[in-house]
């Protein structure tokens, strides 16, 4: 095992552990914070594999923006400190989720392990130039299609927000005070 393998293994273990913690914890804000650890260490995995740009984008988008948005949304709800027993899901649901998770992992393993086999693979360079050439050369049409999809989603979100605002008037301050 090379140093790279050891580092990758360590970071991967932290990623997996924090991912499990984020779905099993009974404290909703802790779940979001474990998600930060998970996404951050995943960026670390990308760095070890040589995909520097993807790692940075991962930190910028997921840790810097998505999780902040999640935390912001959580703060708008009650999100009390301490364990919340009412967050518990029925046993059937938990078993179903576990089965689904294991099945997906198995599917990926069955697909990827024969593909790589025993060969050792050297990470190809994932620096800005390589990624940019691939994105705007070979994959430019899928890229443009994705941007179109995102644009449509954005406009859709605007439309939904506007229509909802026009139909239901804002609750009076007294109502909000009573609900908290």
């Amino acid at each position: 095992m090379t140093t790279r393998d050891v580092v990758f293994l360590l970071i991967g273990l932290i990623t997996a552990a924090s991912a499990i913690l984020s779905v099993t914890t009974r404290q909703v804000v802790h779940a979001a914070l474990w998600l930060v650890v998970c996404l951050g260490t995943l960026a670390g995995c990308y760095v070890v594999l040589g995909a520097e740009l993807v790692a940075l984008v991962q930190v910028l988008i997921y840790v810097g923006a998505v999780v902040v948005l999640v935390l912001f949304a959580l703060m708008l709800t009650r999100a009390p400190i301490g364990r919340q027993p009412d967050l518990a899901t029925p046993l059937v649901q938990r078993i179903a989720a576990a089965v689904l998770g294991v099945a997906t992992t198995g599917l990926f393993l069955a697909m990827l392990v024969p593909l790589v086999g025993q060969d050792s693979v050297t990470p190809v360079s994932g620096d800005t130039h390589t990624v940019a050439t691939a994105t705007f050369g070979t994959w430019v049409w899928p890229f443009e299609l994705l941007s179109l999809l995102l644009l449509a989603a954005l406009i859709g979100a605007f439309a939904v927000a506007r229509v909802a605002g026009a139909i239901s008037p804002r609750p009076a301050p007294a109502d909000r005070g009573a609900s908290t």
Partner: peptide, 13 residues
């Protein structure tokens, strides 16, 4: 290599 992106990404954390 991608220093500008690095600073923006990390400072946002």
């Amino acid at each position: 290599d991608a220093g500008a992106l690095f600073v923006v990404a990390v400072a946002g954390v």
